[in-house]
Design a protein around this nucleic acid. Structure first.
Lengths: 218, 218
DNA sequence: TATTTTTTTTAGATTTGTCTAAATATTTGC
DNA sequence: GCAAATATTTAGACAAATCTAAAAAAAATA
């Protein structure tokens, strides 16, 4: 069964929002997708008839099993293309998201599986997010953000939560990228900022917002 | 200015048909694109207002300079992606056309130019067709089909005119691919077939249809 | 040339995804 | 618990790309 790019975008968006929220609301979806609540209602009805979501009027929406499966397929494609763009074409990791938004809607099993092999079956994308396999399975890595990580111990940056280009720009400026070794020296209660050591550079301070969005493995 | 995938398909199609025919007719376009004449008329009016074609009621259509430029851009993308699919992902050349039909509509200059570099700035695609450069320029190669090529002299297969998967399948069976060395031994007037030597294999006979669609450089 | 056939266009309908404005339901705050 | 604020849905419209059926123009043919 074929799904339009628009349908796939809604499904993907519901999938991501479900990580934090039990039932996803119409307004939240509208804000995230940059559309109007009325349009969301229309689409949710359509996805309901396709049995991709469980949608109850006024009560929000949840993905069904098959909706979930489609989300994982789209995410797999998105993240594999991001790997391609960064690792093979040399794109900056701040710029790949937008291009991958288009590539992710091309549906051809052989294409994606060949791409996967060509890239060496990567398990994470350039932002450290896990890539689902053909069956929609992926490993979750045990990781904590810089605000929670134990102090005075080197940890390794494994993923970035807020992937806006503004954030990624800032991280580039700090010379923080995936795999960077960081040690938290001190935390300041006043504003939640943290003094950290990045590789062998002099100590710096990162804001609460940064600390909460940089995830590391211990 | 943005053009929809549908607009791009019409433009590309007009471009290809213009090689053989001066003014492209509504019905011809409809048959080629697998749509109805009424839909073609609608689209031609739209492309006219965008100044991508010169369209006169009942008299057929021609691309304008900017229409031509867009066609070349789409063809560039299509052929670069075909190179990627065959040379990097290992696709069979009979299967790449369909996938490239989708990829060609992704518009991102940086993506295409990086892809071009990644592939080593190829000048022809896996079917031997020339790839326009960033400025829409490409080299045309002096080539003739097996029906016209001089006899008893090795020539090198440089492109295939009819690229249907049926044709490509047949060529695979003959072990004919781009770069294959072929010598025409005899031509039969009765049905236009030709006896040829392919590499060091025993002599075989190819039909008129094949001979007219396999192009070679001398 | 007149008639028939073919081609092309017009008119009006349909589907998809979106929108605005209005109506309705839910939630919040007193 | 009720009024006000907020969230959601409905109703009706629109643009894009397509379609069918009918009308009109061009081409073929007798």
């Amino acid at each position: 069964m074929y799904h339009t790019p628009s349908e796939e975008n809604y499904i993907k968006c519901i999938f991501h929002l479900q990580h934090n929220i039990e039932k996803v609301s119409t307004n939240l979806l509208a804000n995230t997708i940059c559309t109007k609540p009325a349009s969301v209602t229309d689409m949710l009805k359509k996805l309901q008839t396709k049995k991709l979501v469980n949608y109850e009027k006024y009560y929000g929406v949840k993905l069904t099993e098959s909706g979930n499966r489609i989300a994982l397929d789209v995410i797999r494609k998105h993240r594999l293309w991001e790997c391609f763009l960064v690792n093979k074409l040399g794109f900056n990791w701040t710029k790949v998201h937008e291009v991958a938004e288009h590539l992710e809607h091309i549906s051809n099993k052989e294409l994606i599986n060949r791409l996967d092999d060509f890239l060496g079956n990567p398990s994470v994308d350039p932002h450290g997010d896990p890539i689902p396999d053909q069956k929609g399975k992926f490993k979750t890595i045990r990781q904590s953000c810089l605000s929670d990580v134990p102090m005075r111990q080197y940890v390794s940056v494994s993923s970035i939560k807020n992937q806006s280009s503004q954030m990624l720009d800032l991280l580039s400026h700090y010379n923080i990228t995936l795999g960077t070794k960081i040690k938290v020296i001190r935390r300041f209660e006043f504003d939640g900022s943290a003094e950290i050591k990045i590789n062998k550079a002099p100590l710096t301070i990162v804001s609460d917002q940064v600390a909460k969005n940089v995830y590391c493995t211990i």
